[in-house]
């Protein structure tokens, strides 16, 4: 109900009070919604940070294992040049456990020379007509896999040529 004051029309005191209450209710609803939104956002942000940290740790591990293998004279002739004879010998004589003592568990490495089509695993009988060396076994059911490829060279001892290759390092949990 509007009321007349000195001939002019104004909203009644009751109506003004109602609109003020509505205003406060709306304000409270908005503030509560904003607080809930902030809580949800911060929780989501924390989860994202955890996931990112976990990913970064795994990626650091992949890079660490890759750098170790690329720089170790047990596998290479120098900086990232793998020797196919050394790789074949390691494949035949060393077990994964020996390397896991140095690099920890839950990883898998594959070196592939790109001078042949397809993939032919290297064993004593196949050498030098082969192009893939695997260190430790690939696990089918492993979780949280992260793998990266690194460009490398593979030195072919028999033909005395350096071929382009790929080092694949994978970690899992």
């Amino acid at each position: 109900m509007d009321c007349k004051i000195l001939g002019a029309r104004f909203p009644s005191v009751q109506r003004k009070g109602q609109s003020e209450i509505m205003e406060y209710i709306l304000m409270v609803v908005f503030i509560v919604a904003a607080i809930i939104a902030i809580i949800i956002f911060l929780t989501w942000w924390n989860l994202q940070q955890f996931q990112m940290d976990a990913f970064k740790n795994r990626q650091d591990r992949v890079v660490g294992i890759g750098q170790y293998i690329m720089g170790d004279y047990m596998f290479t002739n120098g900086d990232s040049v793998f020797d196919d004879a050394k790789l074949t010998a390691i494949n035949a004589s060393m077990s994964c456990d020996d390397l896991q003592k140095i690099l920890g568990t839950n990883w898998y490495v594959k070196i592939k020379a790109l001078d042949m089509a397809g993939e032919k695993p290297c064993k004593w009988n196949d050498y030098p007509d082969c192009n893939v060396w695997s260190i430790c076994t690939y696990k089918e059911n492993a979780k949280d896999r992260l793998g990266q490829n690194f460009p490398v060279n593979v030195y072919r001892k028999v033909s005395d040529k350096t071929a382009l290759g790929v080092l694949y390092v994978e970690v899992y949990s």
């Binding site: 890759g66 990232s80 690194f150 460009p151 060279n153 071929a163 382009l164």
Partner: peptide, 21 residues
């Protein structure tokens, strides 16, 4: 994230291609 890996990747790629027969 990924800076160390990408730096290693691009430098290794250049070196590997240049050293290939």
């Amino acid at each position: 994230g990924g800076n160390e890996f990408t730096a290693l990747y691009v430098n290794n790629l250049l070196l590997s291609v240049m050293r290939t027969d």
